[in-house]
Design a protein around this nucleic acid. Sequence first.
DNA 1: AGACTCAATGAAAGCGCTTTCATGATGGAG
DNA 2: CTCCATCATGAAAGCGCTTTCATTGAGTCT
Lengths: 339, 339
Amino acid sequence: MTSHQAVPTLDDVAKAAGVSPATVSRSLNSPGLVSKSTLQRVKSAVDALGYTPHFGARSMSAKRTMTIGAIIPTMENAIFAKGIQAFQERLHSLGYTLLISSNSYDPEIEAEQVRTLASRGADGILLIGYWREEKVYEFLKQRNIPFLLAWAFAANNALPAIGFDNRASMYQLCDQVLAMGHRNIAVISGTTEGNDRATNRLKGITERLKVEGIDLASVPIIETPYDIDNGSDAFERLMRLPDRPSVVMCGNDVLAVGAMQRAQEMGIKIPSDVSITGFDGIELARVVTPKLTTVRVPHSEMGRLAADELVWMVESGEVGRSQELASEIVVEKSIISLA
Amino acid sequence: MTSHQAVPTLDDVAKAAGVSPATVSRSLNSPGLVSKSTLQRVKSAVDALGYTPHFGARSMSAKRTMTIGAIIPTMENAIFAKGIQAFQERLHSLGYTLLISSNSYDPEIEAEQVRTLASRGADGILLIGYWREEKVYEFLKQRNIPFLLAWAFAANNALPAIGFDNRASMYQLCDQVLAMGHRNIAVISGTTEGNDRATNRLKGITERLKVEGIDLASVPIIETPYDIDNGSDAFERLMRLPDRPSVVMCGNDVLAVGAMQRAQEMGIKIPSDVSITGFDGIELARVVTPKLTTVRVPHSEMGRLAADELVWMVESGEVGRSQELASEIVVEKSIISLA
DNA sequence: AGACTCAATGAAAGCGCTTTCATGATGGAG
DNA sequence: CTCCATCATGAAAGCGCTTTCATTGAGTCT
């Protein structure tokens, strides 16, 4: 089992093709510099030997790895799936390979992953959201590794980001909820600590309610990690409140779907008894009954644009340009108008 | 912007700590060989400089990369998400890094990804299912890269695999469907070409129906890629058939949820008008109304076990041991008993 | 026909690390 | 006290590739 038939190297190819290693390297990387006939011979030798360039060696001599890293909070639910898929597809067509890692929303692990990606020579890195320890940004800058933030956008922040305004989007959704006559509002927010998206979504709600003159002290707010079951439990707690809310606004679709689940189990009718809203516009929101009122985010577009921008940063060496994407309020049957 | 403050190297650390590069290397990789005091000085130097080992260089001198690759068909829906998440978490705790790539069920791309992972020095590779071109397996063997298959298990196949028996599982589900009195059955299968899981699931149904003495020619079967909308469309076509089936068995939960969606749009009641079944037991199946009758697969367990086994293969050099996992028929409200 | 340009190729250095191998110091055994 | 393990460390080779720099030969121009 440990019989190592040596992996063919570039030198082997050179020998087989009767040329110098330099020529093989050129044939592979800048075929324009090599004559047709030589190119042909090299190609044959490569095929015959089943040669694959050694990535480590290559990354050591060349300065580029054609690799982009992405660090996302989770792969478990679909929040990032669609966007990352689009990101990866675009990268692939640009000739780059994507390295993904996820960290269960743990900033320690995230910081470690940044170092790992740097070690591996990632030409650029995609991060989710703004908030993380300053030292992470410092490390990236010191290492001169281009990075881009996604899934968030804040006009007042200089870091390059491609995403949407979480606060404004949720503010708008809250607008809609108020316009439909709801005044007795409860909130199930994602964990806000260290999470700018969750924090800003919550802020979008509270700011809008304040404008409306609603006493925030009277608004029940439960914070919990993004997870279906947590959404269910939070919903149940809200329903046991003496003053039952007419609408429960959730920090994302996963929480909202969890809430709808529990509602059904408890025999609470959505939306006639209670209205529910989500955020993200993932597939889940479309398939539940009734369909979920939510904020639809342009996942795929965001992924594609992020890929384009990050590659541009890498190749041009220029500083990244931020871009705000529009989100869209989608009103479905999970909310009822009291007006 | 292009001001390169050189990335610190191991030599820099050596200089800063006043020791030889060899000692630094040892401090990092086999601290046991280095004296306490030296170790301490090296550690300080590493921190002071913010040193990170260069992965390419390391992988060139060492034979291991502590990297495992996984190639999955898709990240877009949740079919693989949970299992891969568990896989990655286990790998992480074993000290390995996971490299994921997805290929939209394209075997060409998959073959390319295998070579890419080999290039990058993956110590081992996880693949989904059995079917792929023989040359891929030959390449892996020639390169002496341990690989493990997951999401499938076939007792008669020698390749190491950790998964469940797709055929037998679907056979059992079909058992259940028949036991509930259904005889007029239609099928929405995933694309079977090049996909052993889809093929075997379909086979599980047809074999069981044959045993029952049902004429297969009379059983409508639609093949379509795994996607919600495809499930919807296929369902609609089935419903337009003159002899409407009493149950639609779907190749996975995604197709089934698509079917349920369209049923609702068409005003067809599930399960009173038509029953629907899925396969996989992903979250989606739990949140739709009514809940989906499906085959629950132990995603997380499979991911963990696969990580353990693959790492064991890598570290021991032994040939991988296959393991069959049990699946579970989950009967929910999406199916009605005609008996 | 001589001088020159340019395309195609090779020689060799060097990227940052690990790992023999060799060396010096230390300390216990005889 | 001398000898020999033993431990901690250093010197240096080499991993597989890319990339200057130099060289050659062929074509171009006058």
